[in-house]
């Protein structure tokens, strides 16, 4: 009970996020499901923010952790940049005559 009391704000936040997320994504037409998925994939690259926060806390003389942290940041950056660029590239191909006017 104490846990719920202390984190009530967070619990509200999570529940709203879940519902808003489902509501918005349910409206995406099937034609755009692949870009949606790769776009969402890129958004999950926000994990890199955590990796950056973490790597800056590592003591500068702990080389093993620093190297691992560097890899984590690299992987996150790869996810973000690759995800958004490839989504952009896909979306560029969706064209319509009505759109070109």
């Amino acid at each position: 009970m104490e846990f719920i009391q202390n984190n009530l704000e967070f619990i509200y936040f999570v529940i709203f996020c879940v519902f808003i997320g489902i509501e918005i994504i349910a409206n995406v037409p099937a034609i755009l499901h692949t870009p949606l998925m790769s776009g969402a994939n890129a958004i999950s690259g926000v994990i890199m923010v955590g990796a950056v926060i973490m790597i800056l806390q590592i003591p500068s003389d702990n080389y093993l952790l620093l190297a691992t942290g560097g890899i984590a940041v690299f992987l996150g950056a790869l996810n973000i940049s690759g995800g958004f660029f490839v989504t952009g590239r896909m979306l560029k191909m969706f064209n319509s005559k009505n759109n070109k006017k």
């Binding site: 790597i55 940041v73 690299f74 950056a77 790869l78 973000i80």
Partner: peptide
Amino acid sequence: NLIIALTAIAIGGFLG
């Protein structure tokens, strides 16, 4: 640490 983080982002971003 800052240098490592920035380099990692640069390489990751470029490769992606």
